[in-house]
Amino acid sequence: MKSLDKEHVKHVAKLARLRLDENEVSKYEIALNQILEEIEKIENVELTTNVELIAPTENHDLYFHDTVKNELKRNIVLKACGVDETHEYIEVPKVIADEEN
């Protein structure tokens, strides 16, 4: 059976942007292994379909047709982001000019 170690726990924490101390790492190591054991149950299910149920809705092909509406005033945008309404931008700690997409 698959199991995961402390390094793996740290990797997952890093992905989730959660900081764990060594104690927590040990705790999660046990917890995640326990969950993994539970989850492995579905490994044994013999599939009788290839259909993936993403969401239980029969809705499909819903669109809007390129109409512009519901735009917010800038002070509202800033207020919604918890920023002083007189600013122009939302500021974050300096990011190295790198990209991700």
Partner: peptide, 20 residues
């Protein structure tokens, strides 16, 4: 979202709640 897709010199004005 239904925000305007257009360059604007005014930052943070072509925005709906969805874009946030």
């Amino acid at each position: 979202s239904t925000a305007k897709n257009e360059f604007s010199y005014e930052p943070n004005t072509n925005v709906t709640l969805i874009d946030l």
